[in-house]
């Protein structure tokens, strides 16, 4: 029996290493999907009924004051879809990531195997893409009968946008969580980041209603870019220039966030 490893052994690809974690994520999903049905499917539907249908019934304004939407429901629906994508991933990359590196420390167990920190991130993001796809897919399908999707192509565009919105939020916040020693910072993320963004980034009303300074601030938030892009797709008001800006912004966030999270997690697990 030779004591050493063979001089050459084929390295598994990044895809292969991420895929090896599919059983783990499937097991997690089998355990948690029932609970997530309520938060991921029913809650958004309640929002659509309460804000879009019932509150929207009191709102009668010309389409030009609603960025081209013919009803408040048609205006608010894409906003809710994008906001839902944000909230879904933020929930997945805050406390659960803290658990992986601090409480049950399973990330340390995972990287004691051939998997490295980048592989752990890749598989986790893969799971998030699956969650985003199922949740926003169902959400858009439920919205279809309300007549708020103007074309099938637009619906597909809105669907794909959700994956991008999700990843744009997931990677930077994952990066934050991966390096945090204390979870108290999450309260700030939610109270000063996620909730104000949810309320003021154009999901519920056109940001033109804000004061000029606040409007500029709103237009700098990632959620506004996500909402506006989703809305362009559902309303059929796609304009190449602004759409490319949204796309570039969200891609840059997801990409830079990815580099950051891999660096932070590598440092956390390698100490």
């Amino acid at each position: 029996m030779a004591p050493d490893l063979p001089a050459t052994s084929a390295r598994p690809s990044r895809w292969e290493l991420a895929w090896r974690q599919s059983d783990y994520w499937l097991t997690v999903y089998r355990r948690t999907w029932r609970g997530s049905v309520i938060t991921s499917f029913l809650t958004p539907l309640f929002y659509v009924l309460a804000m879009g249908v019932l509150l929207g019934g009191f709102i009668q304004v010309a389409p030009e004051r609603l960025e081209g939407a013919t009803s408040y429901l048609a205006f608010v629906a894409p906003g809710l879809v994008a906001a839902q994508s944000m909230q879904l991933v933020v929930g997945e990359v805050t406390y659960p990531v803290m658990g992986m590196v601090k409480w049950n420390r399973i990330a340390f167990g995972m990287t004691a195997t051939p998997l490295g920190p980048a592989d752990v991130v890749n598989a986790h993001l893969g799971f998030l893409v699956f969650r985003l796809a199922t949740v926003s897919g169902v959400f858009l399908a439920v919205l279809a009968p309300f007549g708020v999707l103007t074309s099938p192509a637009g619906a597909v565009g809105a669907f794909l946008t959700q994956i991008l919105v999700g990843l744009a939020f997931a990677t930077p916040i994952y990066g934050l969580s991966a390096g945090l020693r204390n979870e108290a910072a999450f309260a700030l993320v939610f109270r000063l980041g996620i909730i104000p963004m949810f309320l003021f980034s154009g999901a519920f009303f056109p940001v033109g209603n804000l004061s000029p300074a606040l409007e500029t601030l709103a237009r700098l938030t990632p959620l506004w870019h996500g909402v506006d892009l989703t809305r362009m797709f559902t309303l059929g008001t796609l304009e190449a220039g602004p759409a490319l800006v949204h796309l570039g912004y969200l891609l840059a966030m997801a990409g830079l966030g990815y580099l950051w999270v891999v660096r932070r997690l590598t440092r956390r697990l390698g100490d």
């Binding site: 598994p12 090896r20 974690q21 997690v28 355990r31 049950n104 420390r105 051939p114």
Partner: peptide, 22 residues
């Protein structure tokens, strides 16, 4: 320090871990 996934079953902890090795 144990790095077990406390929410999974005993056997699932072994199975998912073995999969990480391919």
């Amino acid at each position: 320090e144990d790095t077990l996934d406390t929410e999974l079953t005993v056997r699932d902890n072994l199975v998912v871990y073995g999969r990480y090795f391919g």
